[in-house]
Write a protein that binds this DNA or RNA. Structure first.
Lengths: 197, 197
DNA sequence: CGCGGAGTTGGACGCTCGTCCAACTCCCGG
DNA sequence: CCGGGAGTTGGACGAGCGTCCAACTCCGCG
């Protein structure tokens, strides 16, 4: 019965939601399970969020915002294009491996969003967020190292996302950090191969 | 009330399940929805399958068997390593694009299988199936074109799967066939780059 | 022609879900 | 010190879920 600021409840429920989703998938991420994880009665959920779907939308927005900040920081220092590309990909993996629940939750939400037509916009927003972050990274590489790509810039960004997505999908199943790191190193080499000689 | 052979019911229900899963995701693929899609009463579902989970397992096994047959056929004629690699990847995309529901359903099942610990073995089996098919393809390339890889054979196979998985994940969201084709062409070039000079 | 077992299915059981509201508690302005 | 609005929540509602079984129908064998 303790009184808690609505913003604090919101933050606690969002954090609890990430844990519940990562643990048992969207299928088990009910309002009851999330509220219990946060140590609140079920009814508190609907005092903070208008609906279960609205809470998922807020969660996605929060995760995407945090990720785009993190990516911007990881390209700060790099002496060569090789360091830049490799550092960005391995940096992405380091962050994902260090706090896997957020990564798992995001993939889970994207898969779950296919269950209805209006939810599908959510998945598109996630990929727009990804594309924006990676597009900024590709442009930064062009400016810092005077790179010209053998394919359109948009295809470079798309290929980078193919690699990170493919690695993440496999890692979600086998949790093999070392293999993910090797795949990412191979992928970094492939991206470097897209540079015009 | 018409009498139908159990095998025919089984096939009809599996086909209906693929359609329902592709249309609305695992979340909406209830026994009632699948039976209705197949034009049967709900109770027929449990006359054929012991449970909903058992039906999903049979579905996965059937899809994997069909896919491994298809992949084996696509590497039949190829004059060069470039044709071999490019043909296999584009061939995979052609089959997936021609009959997207099966591909969608399989990805949906893998995502859904994270909701419980014992189901997680299902996802592992799917990836074992993929790895087997792609491993055979990599070995065939070695024998037919006397290829030596710059990285272990297992990592080549893993990287190919990263590419197909990443392309599929993106295509599931934006359904952009042309972009998928370009990403796959870039990926084929990257695989060729793994050949020892 | 009749009977027994196989095939078939309507309906019910117990459960979880998202959502909501009436009732309770608490704090602050007067 | 007290009244009232804001904060809080137990419990209920209807819907959908997987599963099961008793009862019905039908066919082939004797």
């Amino acid at each position: 019965m303790q009184r808690i600021a609505v913003e604090d409840r919101r933050a606690a429920l969002l954090a609890a939601a990430v844990r519940v989703i990562a643990r048992g998938g969207m299928a088990r991420a009910s309002t009851r399970a999330i509220a219990a994880e946060a140590g609140m009665p079920t009814a508190s959920f609907h005092y903070v969020f208008t609906s279960h779907a609205a809470m998922v939308e807020e969660l996605v927005a929060a995760i995407l915002a945090a990720q785009s900040v993190a990516v911007a920081g990881s390209v700060a220092e790099a002496g060569s294009l090789r360091e830049f590309v490799g550092g960005a990909l391995q940096g992405w993996l380091d962050r994902a491996a260090e706090d896997p629940e957020v990564e798992v939750a995001l993939h889970e939400i994207v898969a779950w969003s296919r269950s209805s037509a209006e939810l599908r916009r959510l998945a598109e927003r996630v990929y727009d967020g990804y594309a924006g972050s990676i597009g900024a990274f590709v442009r930064a590489a062009e400016e810092r190292f005077a790179v010209r790509w053998a394919v359109p810039r948009e295809d470079v960004a798309r290929f980078v996302l193919v690699i990170t997505d493919g690695v993440a999908a496999r890692w979600l199943v086998d949790r093999d950090d070392a293999a993910a790191r090797r795949s990412l190193a191979t992928g970094a080499g492939a991206v470097l191969g897209l540079v015009e000689a």
